[in-house]
Amino acid sequence: MKSKSSWGRNFFIGLMLLFMYAPIIIMIIYSFNASKTMANWGGFSLKWYEALFSDRDIMAALEVTVTVAVLSSITATFIGTAAAIGIHSMKRRWRNAMMYCSNIPVINPDIVTGVSLMFAFSLLAVPQGYTRLLLAHITFNIPYVILSVMPRLRQTSNSLYEAALDLGAKPSVALRKVILPQIMPGVISGAILAFTLSIDDFVISFFSQQGAQNLSIYIYSLARRGINPKINALSALMFVTVMSLLLTVNFLGGKSSPEARKKRAQKKEARIARKAGTFVMEEN
């Protein structure tokens, strides 16, 4: 009985994995198809890759995506860490109020956040294009940094701070030399999380662009016009990048691999949760 049911289980899991990967694999295969449609195989060709690289719009979109991700995650990390420290030392009522507000972009569906940002930008006459995109990304990144740093702050005993003061450190020095090192893992994972979310964002960026496209928006506009093998090529490249990143991180931290895996698992979970609008963050 054991082997029969485990065969059934394995088959089911295998099927599901196929379901998850088939579309991607198909895209990769057809990225090498010389013919434009899937109707026939025109032979192995790299022309779509060439087209991809010579497509200036894509390269521009890629640049926008990466720069926005880097800038917004760094800014969000600074503002968010400072905010977390501030919120942590507030009285309970204020703290709850701040956290409630801070979690609004986390809970709200993307579309509502995107629309409300559009409102804000237009009323404040923020210049369209890159500026709006950047501000939007910073806005939705900060709450995740805060949610990443807060548990660490809670874990850090207040007597450490007092001990530093007691030994003669000014409050700012105590913060820098004692509290910051303690919360650093949270700060870093917050930054990484922000970066990941930013790279992948579509909906919020959609409402904030008009002028600057990030990768998601570009793909959307391309895909709307129908099937385009350039996208296949892009997917193939992206998949390879993701896989190699995964493998490097996994093998890089040889002895810290369980930690690295845990960290990435946390990152993944949080990112997934973000997309759904509910936040569940696992601390160990």
Binding site: S159, A163, L165, D166, K170, P171
Partner: peptide, 20 residues
């Protein structure tokens, strides 16, 4: 006068050693 300016030092109940 704030704590960091007093010539007084404390041994805390839970030691408060800096883990890092």
């Amino acid at each position: 006068v704030p704590a960091y300016k007093r010539k007084v030092n404390t041994v805390f109940q839970k030691y408060a050693l800096f883990p890092h």
